[in-house]
Structure formats: C-alpha cells, structure tokens
Design a protein around this nucleic acid. Structure first.
Lengths: 336, 336
DNA sequence: CTGAAAGCGCTTACAG
DNA sequence: CTGAAAGCGCTTACAG
C-alpha cells in the first residue's frame, strides 16, 4: 500500500505537509494542498489507520461494541444503528458478541482496549460487570445501552421499560383479561424490574390482583421462554393472556403454545416486548411493544463520539419511548 | 496502559526479551521467562495490538468480515461461526455490513485494508464485486462464503445448493404436488442458478413439467418474497406448494399467505431454503432446507487463518451438505 | 506556511 | 540466551 512517504515524494513536499492536508489542518498553502491532493488521488493513497491510531492521542476512529447476544434481533438492530452513525463519521466498529459468557466478555473488552478504541458501547449483562467498571476506571469512554450500571455515573441510552410494559398490560386488561401472566427476565436486572413494575402498575390501576404464580422470572432466552410457558399451561387455572418480556422469550412461548395445539389468540392471547420486522409473518401476526434498537444504537454512538475528543461532560440518560403495535395475537375475552 | 518498557524495567530485562516471551520465542532462559511472566502478571500487561499490527509482517491477528445483510439470520450464524474460530486463535474480527450497497461495501473494504487485516472473509453480492477483486490483486487473502467469484481462483466455502433444492422439490413432489412454485433469487447469481437447477432437476426426474410462470426471480429480500407470493396467488391457477430460495423470501411469502387468509399447509404448502432456530415458533413450524451458517463461517475462518503466515496454497472449495428438516408446513396433496 | 525530528509500542535481524 | 538498534506509518510540537 502507498504510504505518506510516497505521496510526499510524488508531490515534492515533506510528510508533515501531507499529513496536514489529510487531517485538514488549515495552515497549508492552497496551491500546496492542491498538489498534495492530486498526488493522493493519483497514487490512490489511503492512510494507514493502524499507524494513525498508534500515534494519535486524540481520535482513533474506532469504537468497540460489546453485545450479549447477536442472535437476538434487537441487538442486530442496535448494530445497524451503531454502524450507520459510526461509518458516517469515519469511525470503524469492532463487534464482540459474548453470548452471555462473562469470560468471553472480558476477552473482548481486553482486545478492544488493546486495539486502542476511542470508546466502548456496551450492553451490560446479568452479572456485576466488573470488567466494564474496570474499563471505565482505566479511562475508556463508555456508553451503556439497554440498561445502566447500578449507581455508576455513565451515559445510558435505553427505553422507557416501565411505560412500555404498562401499556402492554393495560391493553390486555382492556381486552377483558384478568389472568395475565408475565414471563419476565432475571429478577435482579433493572430492565426486568422496570418491566415487572409497569406490569404491576397497570394491574393495580385497574384493580386486578397480581397473582404470584403468574409472574415468572428466568434467563431471557428462547429455551426459558418455552419452558416457562409450559409451566404456565400446566397451572390448574391457566392464564388467558401472556406478556413476554422480550422477543426470545416470546418466540419460545409461542413454540410451546403451538406444541400444545393451542390457538392464538382464541385459546390464549400473547403480547411481546420487542418487535421484529418479520413479526407479521408469524401466524397470527404478533402484537408487540416496539423499541427501536436502531435508534438506541445510533444515539449511543452519537453520545460516544461526542465524548471523544470533547472535554469531559456530565453523563446523560437518553430514554426513548416504546410504541404498542396492535396486530392479531390478542383478542377480546368474551366468556369469563 | 502498561507497555513493554514497563514490564522490561520491572523484570530487569530488555524489551526484546519481553517481546520474546510474549511471542513464545523458544530461546529464552526458563528463569528469565518466569521472571518476565511474573512481571506481566503483576503489572497486568496486555500487548498493544495496534503496535503489534503496525510492526509485524506476519500475523496481525485481525480478520475482516464483509457481509451483505446482517438482518438475515443466516449471516448472523456465519458471524457466530467466524467469531468462535477466530477468537479461539487470538484473532479479532471486524464486521462490515454493507446492506447490499456497493459503495458501502467499498467503504468497508477500504477501512479493513487500512486496518491492515490479515485477510478478508467475504460474501460476494449481486454485482461484479470489482472491489473484492481489487483487494485480491493487492495481495490480501480472501475467502468467499456462500458463493465464489466467477472464474477467479479463491477459497470458497458454501453449501450444495443444487442438491438442497433438489431434495426440497422432490419432497414436495412425493407429497403429490405438481404445481410447485419456486421463488428464486436474482437470476445471474450462482446460488440462484444452482438452486433453480436443483428444482428443475427434481421436476424432470419425476416427469413434472416446469411451468415458467411458477418460477420467479427477484432480489432476495423480505419485500420481494411478499410481492412474488402475491403474484403467485393471483395466478389463474394457483400453485399448491411453494419452495422459497432463502429465509427472507420465505418469511415474506408467509406474510402474504396470511394476509390472504390462507392456511398453511391446508391451502398451500411451503418449504424454505435456510432454517432459523425459531422456525419452530412459526405456525405451523416451517419445513426447511437447513444449511449451517455457523459451520460455513467457522470453516472459512479456518481456511483464512491457515492461509495467513503459511505459504501460498492452492485454493480449496469446501462444500457442505444441507439437511431437509421436515416439520409441518407441507402436506400431502389428496384431491387433484 | 513548511520541514526535520521525535516518538507511539511493538518486532526482528544483528551482534555478542 | 540477551540486548541495542532500526523501523513499521503516522502525528505533532518545535524551528524557521
């Protein structure tokens, strides 16, 4: 590949000058600049990002994105949002998918640090996320998505979980449902607490008792969704509606429902947190609380890049609203 | 972050020696090595990958993965396969998702080159992929997945498309179907040609006429799947079964089928190329030709890393077989 | 406005 | 077996 040296020789200037035109440093004679630009074009020169990153103290042009589960369509949307903003601003993105495995999360974090990223966008997982705290302590800029880091002061971009869950639950209540189950995530995660909170608030607002056996906590994955749905169906008195706390849980629950030859929404109504572009290919089309992973990823990247190179800034919280997309998986309860 | 220098001082050796123990160069006194290793541990030293990459001529520990569409679950599996192999061998991976946009594909390729990757894993898109050819010409190692690059001599890891399509079609024929539609991809892509080839071969083998209006080519996305399915349903004589050439097309077709209040498989049978882990959450569970994106990604990475540092080697083609997963979206045709 | 020089953190011949 | 030195391709004070 062509180097600064070659361009400099070709344009008959020093490498300093070439570097200056590349970095848009203003104090370059317009004529010189033109000559250099021509050389760059002719030699098809592209700066070596590795050397730039090693040398530059300010802006390295690299962001690390650390995600718990790339199989979750929500995170795929996040990736798209991050990518779009980052590449528009000439930042590259490295993606680390740790699959809920803390050791692997540390592996990625180490690699990203060692790649001298400008900063990290992280979706904290279940644990205490000590490794993320370490990164912050070492001075890396961090933006959290989906949820924060306890009482640590970081930027976080998330969604109004409580309100989203509230709306979903209220919708079910208005449809006449009373035995509404909630398949929740792990009990100690903020996201879970907030969504359960919204669920309970809606129930209370409408004077519906919250029944303990109908609220079940578990890991947020496909298998758990399927297993919990089965427990729910095995109950002496079944729920007439289910609100699942995320898309994997929803998909798992759906599998179990169909395995039991039950019909949605005639036998049971279901509403999911998280929407997919193919929710409409489900039969019936899924009613869902939609949160935009794309917007979240995009905003998180904006905040991170803003932080890079800029002076320290107070941390911000950006909270997006969800929207309830009514399709056909929920039905008015007539009997009862 | 700690540097080689600090470790060297701490262990009272030169940086050369520290570098040697890090890179497992054998000629280091065991005692010295131990002392250095202790220092590394105590100072929590992690080598700076950027400096390593800038300096080292052999192995840079970075792979670029260039994908046409991260929203396609198949590519998500590919990513998982690549990641698993790469990180096990201490390679990091940068992912570029160009969304079928050639300009953006070039952008990623440029960035990856400029990041001094060891090599590229690429899923060629519709076009001529001039940019990929450029990269090869410049000396970058490239492994193609999903399909090759015309007559260019590169490693490619793919699936036996013809046989997979043949099996799917034959299955439908054995179920008694004769009017079997095929929603194909873009006509000039090898993958499409192969799958259409398998479809036709099965038809011919069983003496079923291939009807032109039942074989329709289009972009391989969700919207196209939906649109083509509608065309098919609008035909004077509808197909009784559909074989869709990939998962996005299948999902789109499903949407249209349900929009038309048709029942799968009673009104129409459907089988898709590509399986998803949640295919079983579809109602009815989808019958599909399964190809393992994970295996493909894994193998491609193995080939690429093998190529890195090793002497030039003849290019290989690895072709995985597909497996037909029979679920409930296809039904025996009784009337007719 | 421009260039010479130092240096980012490593690896790798070259001596010894 | 170990160290001093050069250099990967850049950026950035420092002089002029």
């Amino acid at each position: 590949m062509t180097s600064l040296r070659k361009v400099a020789d070709y344009a008959k200037v020093s490498i300093s000058t070439v570097s200056r035109v590349i970095n848009n440093v203003p104090l370059v004679d317009p004529k010189t600049r033109q000559r250099v630009e021509a050389a760059i074009r002719e030699l098809n020169y592209v700066p070596n990002r590795v050397a730039q990153r090693l040398r530059s103290s300010a802006r390295k042009g690299l962001i690390g994105l650390v995600l718990p589960d790339i199989q979750n369509p929500f995170y795929v949307d996040v990736i798209r949002g991050v990518e779009a903003y980052a590449y528009q601003h000439n930042f590259a993105v490295m993606i680390g998918n740790f699959g809920q495995n803390e050791t692997r999360q540390k592996l990625y974090l180490d690699i990203f640090k060692s790649e001298a990223v400008d900063g990290l966008i992280v979706a904290p997982s279940q644990g205490e996320n000590r490794h993320i705290l370490d990164a912050i302590a070492e001075g890396f800029s961090v933006v959290c998505i989906d949820r924060g880091l306890g009482d640590v002061d970081v930027d976080v971009v998330k969604v109004n979980n409580r309100k989203g869950a509230f709306t979903a639950t209220e919708y079910l209540i208005e449809l006449g449902h009373r035995r509404i189950a909630h398949i929740a995530g792990l009990s100690h995660i903020p996201t879970t607490t907030e969504r359960v909170g919204g669920y309970k608030a809606a129930m209370e607002k409408h004077g519906v008792d919250v029944i303990d056996e109908l609220v079940r906590y578990s890991k947020s994955d496909y298998e758990s969704g399927a297993a919990i749905m089965q427990e729910l169906l095995d109950l002496a008195e079944r729920p007439t509606a289910v609100f699942a706390a995320n898309n994997l849980l929803t998909l798992g629950a759906l599998k179990t429902i169909y395995d039991n030859d039950l019909i949605v929404p005639d036998d049971i109504s279901i509403i999911g947190f998280d929407d997919m572009y193919w929710s409409v290919s489900l039969n019936p089309p899924l009613t869902a609380v939609q949160q935009s992973g794309y917007d979240i990823g995009n905003k998180a990247t904006e905040l991170l890049i803003q932080r890079v190179g800029a002076a320290a800034r107070h941390s911000t919280n950006v909270i997006f609203e969800t929207t309830l997309v009514k399709r056909k998986s929920c039905k008015k309860l007539t009997r009862n």
